[in-house]
Design a protein around this nucleic acid. Structure first.
Lengths: 120, 120
DNA sequence: ATAAAGTATAAAGCATACTATATACTTTGT
DNA sequence: ACAAAGTATATAGTATGCTTTATACTTTAT
């Protein structure tokens, strides 16, 4: 698919997708058969990958963290153990974030009670 | 307590705390009894508030979102219902983020399996 | 008494992550 | 055929959230 379709499928603006591609988060492929243009094709599998990027961003991961993760995940050079280590580290960080969110939620539920009791 | 102590208690750099105070997330009180300086005092209760700010930041909430929440929470003008609505909205957003994190986690657990099977 | 450490304020600087603009070329619809 | 829409690339601009610097004053330790 072309960039516009990718944008529709992922819900991210074209400019943002280009930014991510330039940053090295993913790569479209120019079809060498077609000589009239250099439009890039984006594979179906990229949709899932980009939605992962989007989700990770929305919960506070930086582009560089996300890049590190994806680079390991799809690395041809890295050993299986090294790859797994990187991904597992990120999974642990996710658990930390989930707990942080639960804590913030608990605080806000307390806040609701205080508000109802006119205590603030 | 003074700014340095607040920094120790919250784990945030003094410069960051000053930034947050300037942004309006909280307020220290200058003791008018003391005429020699205008050092600000930070109440014990601020520690919890700032740790909430820190946690919310780390899971992707912006300062303006956090400010909106805190402003409602401690507003003297707002009605109870309006306050509750703002806080409840944020609680819903937290649930969305928790689900996003779980989804990212699921994806990464799949990634581990793929890596083990040499599928990427 | 005085050097070192702490506090306050204002302003500049910086990193990250977009977002917009300008230019040029290609494809598509009529 | 040609206007409108799509794509690519490079560059500049912007918003957010700090972080650093400069300056000045206060407190603390010796």
């Amino acid at each position: 698919m072309l960039i516009k379709e990718l944008s529709k499928r992922t819900g991210l603006p074209i400019a943002t997708l280009r930014h991510y591609e330039n940053y090295g988060l993913f790569k479209g492929t120019s079809n060498d058969q077609v000589e009239t243009n250099n439009y890039k094709n984006y594979d179906e599998s990229l949709v899932e990958k980009i939605i992962l990027i989007k989700g990770a961003k929305e919960v506070g991961f930086s582009l560089s963290e996300i890049k590190e993760l994806l680079d390991s995940w799809f690395s041809k050079q890295m050993t299986v153990d090294r790859k797994k280590a990187v991904v597992n580290k990120k999974i642990e960080e996710i658990d930390v974030k989930i707990n942080q969110l639960k804590q913030v939620k608990t605080t806000l539920i307390e806040a609701i009670k205080d508000i109802e009791n006119g205590e603030c």
